[in-house]
Write a protein that binds this DNA or RNA. Structure first.
Lengths: 217, 217, 217, 217
DNA sequence: AATGAATGAGGGTTCATTCAT
DNA sequence: TATGAATGAACCCTCATTCAT
């Protein structure tokens, strides 16, 4: 079954690689310019191919957006599971989930963030995504509520808290850059700490050295 | 010079009124769907006129976006001046500025938060807006720095703090609704408190009754 | 209400005129080359305007096809009513209906024939058209059945008879030309006679002078 | 030279078989949806192969259409020769030719009637096909003229007669189905009788039992 | 012989913008 | 002031065709 001693990637592998490169490129563009302002022509040119070539990997432009959302949510749910496995107070879980979500999301793969622009999805896709995203948000609100109960979080409206956090997180791709002063890991750590502090019952007296001295480009 | 006993608005006044209605409608649409996804036809239809009619009030679509940004920044600078006039610690100034910005910005007359989508601006407009926005952000970071110096804010990177806050603030129009459980005043108060708590040296032990009991629809 | 002494057509009238010209052009092209082989660009060029201009008169290409069908069927039903009003044997009614249908359909308005290519219709439009066309065919078969009963038509399968006639009729636009040797009236008369003769119990011993001497270009 | 005891078809034979299957599939699709509405992808999928595979058997899409026409005309000329060999009055020859043409053409092996859509042919192919088709029609008109002379056909314009008949014949694939109530033989017989009756000097007083009782699905 | 990849041309449609009325 | 008509550019998508494997 192995040809060329497996030195050459199979066609299937090639296909997968290209598909991923395309998706990354698309996500980056969507994040930067928005879905409607991004033309397939732009993406294709960036990849050095023709518009038509893209259709080998995705049935249409909306499918790219859908995959982007799906990917982000997949990461989100994994982050939540990690946090649940790790245990701790509600606040600790929340912080850990945020941290992992940000870290993966901003990793070199650049799988980015966008939970923005769901209005651009096709009705069916949208229904699926919204359903998942609602579940995702509900989980996070659950952590907040847990925290209120176990005393790690001050009384507040979980919805407001999560909306605020979501806004901050979704805003990251607008300013974060791989080449900036921070790595994705540093940012994920610092930011999750910062965000959680807003609702922590006993907020740390100071940030860890890392974040206290951080400088965004 | 006065005709009809001034019972009828002058042509100039009428023009101004329509212009404002148009701008509000545009801002609402941009906030909801984004600049590129909003067509002039959509806006015109909402206003009960024709696309062509809009050109009596704005030279082109980008001008609408420009005005929206300019308006938001105008409100922003006013909020900062208010805060400076009021005085207090760095943290107090920051909180007050955020509060006023949110309150005005979400008032029925001019729901406009968007500092998003600057990429959609024409190069010249963009330069002007970016310059202002940078000054705006710098002012806010200044408050943070002041706070660190006067002990009201814990040591942290002002850039990171302001980016987080900005994200949360810009996200508001995605979920805030006039008809929701909160008024714009309530939200402005609650959210500014919440956001500032993330960097406060001595965060309040509890939120004021208002926000502790708030429920977002 | 009348301006310029009604010497200039109103905008509405202009609109209607252009719309009709467009529809005629489209029908002609569809008849000649088929729906899919006809591009809106072709039609627009023929009319001396841009593709985009067409969208002032029809929402999309399929709408043109739909209108063409609808128009043809409208003519068909009118022809049937005429025939029913005129009365006579089943055969006479059939012949009269065919004659009128052909005559109007090939008139200078060139509203042509196409009952072909219904597969190109959008599902909804198609359902509506097929329903009507079925009723139309049923009416014609009804005439055949009447004829069999009243002795004007020899026993035969009405479906087969009508299918044959339909084929002959729908074929006409492929070869008929305004500039040919026959007028639309002559053709309508001759052809309806010829077609009905195939199922007439007592077919005329000879065609009227007209058709006996007809010469197609 | 014979391997496997000739139990396996030679490569050449395989090629030929596939080529024929492809042509049949193409003709069926063209008949159903028209040339332009049929994509090579459709055909390939029906055959369970890829678009690219088709190019092993035909140089391009137009060649498929050309072959379809050529095939139909070949059948047509054979039908005419049969009729001429059989002899009889002009009417009898015409009827026989039509009958054979329909019968072969609708047999399962090569359902192909299309003399429609010649506009879709490449200029050169078209010239060849049109030339042949004109000769074919001329032959049929010749039978009509013979019939007028020998008294089997009433005086009429042969062109009109043949056009009518052609239309009816070309329409058949739109409604005929293998699974319907009639076999291709029955239909060929019934329809040729029906069509010829329209110009017969002494039309049969009744159709043969077959056609009188025929019921199209 | 057959495939997947890629292309270039073209088609339908949208939209910001201009203009005569 | 407001409208309908018209345009040209851009965009998404399809498809016949070619090519390396």
């Amino acid at each position: 079954m192995a040809t060329w001693n497996n030195a050459v990637p199979t066609r299937k592998a090639m296909h997968q690689l290209k598909r991923e490169a395309l998706l990354r490129e698309a996500i980056a563009a969507f994040n930067q310019k928005g879905f409607h302002a991004t033309s397939l022509g732009d993406i294709a040119t960036s990849l050095g191919v023709t518009k038509a070539a893209l259709y080998h990997y995705f049935p249409n432009k909306h499918a790219l957006l859908y995959e982007a959302f799906a990917e982000a949510l997949r990461v989100g749910f994994e982050a939540i599971e990690s946090a649940e496995r790790a245990g701790g107070t509600g606040l600790e879980k929340l912080q850990m989930a945020l941290r992992e979500y940000l870290e993966v999301t901003l990793s070199e793969m650049s799988r980015c963030v966008i939970i923005t622009e769901e209005h651009a999805l096709e009705p069916e896709d949208r229904a699926r995504i919204v359903e998942q995203r609602d579940r995702f948000e509900a989980k996070l609100r659950g952590f907040v509520r847990e925290g209120i109960d176990d005393g790690s979080v001050i009384p507040c409206d979980p919805k407001l808290a999560i909306f605020s956090i979501f806004g901050a997180v979704n805003w990251v791709p607008k300013w974060f850059s791989d080449s900036g002063a921070w790595s994705n890991r540093q940012l994920a750590k610092g930011m999750s700490e910062l965000l959680c502090r807003s609702i922590a019952k006993q907020p740390p007296a100071a940030f860890e050295p890392d974040i206290a001295k951080m400088r965004v480009d």
